[in-house]
Design a protein around this nucleic acid. Structure first.
Length: 311
DNA sequence: ACGCTTTGAAGAGCACACGG
DNA sequence: CCGTGTGCTCTTCAAAGCGT
């Protein structure tokens, strides 16, 4: 890290944290305490209004009124931000389409002309692919209203499209979590219409209104058996080659090997039942489901239905 | 190779907080 | 009030990095 970046780092850290001592700053910026003392000295010479407190509970503060003129980023920081921005666009963060280009310009304009050309050149050869992204689009109001509901701690009123019976339902929801999973954006929370925890696909929210009523479910977790994203444990016998092929997959994240050999015995804790089912049906010679019994019955029923249909 | 700058380690001195 | 612990300030010395 260059000295100028470190000086900026000290200013931003003190602005954010309030008071920090030399040891904390040295750990944060990964330099010795002596270097921090020298940097503090340099900042004082640059007329940055620092206040030092000696003795126990001492440290440094920056005058609250000190104004940081503009954001300064290194080339590495710009590259990281652009990577994150590109991933976000690929994940279709709601409303990102219109904001993407402007935000990208703002970030890249932090760099000088020469570095800008270099970074543009770099991003011609870097791309991100997120498979199975569900929605074509989101309603414009959805994300801003959900974000506001979390910041204000208030309930929302939504009109939600249920594809099974092709109907629009209206309901009051106390949002608890906004998340991206399995190719789409979801909102989970307490549904007052059903009186239980429900997860909603954002692209199926047609209308949304922020209510005046306070959300009392923000701090306490809501448990629900009908929740799509709960973890279940699966027990398999699996061939070593297939295990090697799939062990890095997202649905295998919580995997325990019970017996290691040409035929392996594993336990998988996963919330992606559809992917597990596809794995079982696509690899009948290499994987055998041992449990749980209820899920085995589910697989049997699927296979019976397939047989009835195609024999 | 040389000079300059930056950095780090160690130690001494001073100020302050706190408990006995 | 005094001893102890913590933290800022300052000095000295050595080493590494960088440009010429």
């Amino acid at each position: 890290m260059k000295k100028t970046e470190r000086l900026n780092g000290i200013i931003y850290a003190l602005k954010e944290k309030g008071k920090l001592n030399c040891k904390e700053l040295s750990e944060l910026l990964e330099v010795s305490e002596r270097t921090i003392y020298r940097d503090i000295d340099a900042l004082c010479q640059l007329k940055v209004p620092l206040i030092s407190y000696e003795g126990k509970n001492g440290g440094y503060e920056i005058d609250k009124s000190y104004f940081i003129p503009s954001i300064q980023l290194t080339e590495q920081e710009v590259i990281m931000l652009l990577m994150v921005l590109n991933v976000g666009r690929e994940m279709k963060i709601p409303n990102m389409g219109s904001e993407y280009q402007l935000l990208r310009s703002k970030i890249i304009n932090v760099l000088g002309e020469a570095d800008r050309t270099k970074v543009n050149q770099l991003f011609k050869h870097v791309s991100f692919h997120v498979d199975r992204v569900l929605p074509k689009d989101y309603s414009d109001k959805v994300l801003p209203t959900i974000l506001e509901s979390f910041m204000e701690g208030k309930n929302i009123y939504i009109t939600y499209y249920a594809p099974v019976n092709e109907e629009m339902t209206e309901r009051k929801v106390s949002p608890t979590k906004l998340f991206y999973s399995d190719g789409g954006w979801y909102l989970s929370g307490f549904c007052h219409k059903r009186s239980e925890k429900r997860t909603f696909r954002l692209d199926r929210i047609d209308k949304i209104e922020l209510m005046d009523e306070l959300n009392t479910y923000l701090e306490k977790p809501i448990q629900s058996a009908s929740d799509k994203f709960t973890f279940k444990e699966y027990h398999f016998e699996i061939s070593k080659p297939l295990y090697r092929l799939i062990k890095e997959n997202f649905y295998m994240e919580n995997c325990t090997v019970l017996i290691d050999g040409e035929k392996m015995n594993i336990k998988v804790l996963s919330k992606y039942e559809e992917d597990i089912t596809n794995l079982i049906l696509s690899n009948p010679y290499d994987i055998k489901l041992l449990g749980p019994e209820a899920y085995k019955e589910h697989i049997r029923a699927l296979i019976r239905e397939l047989c009835n249909r195609y024999i």
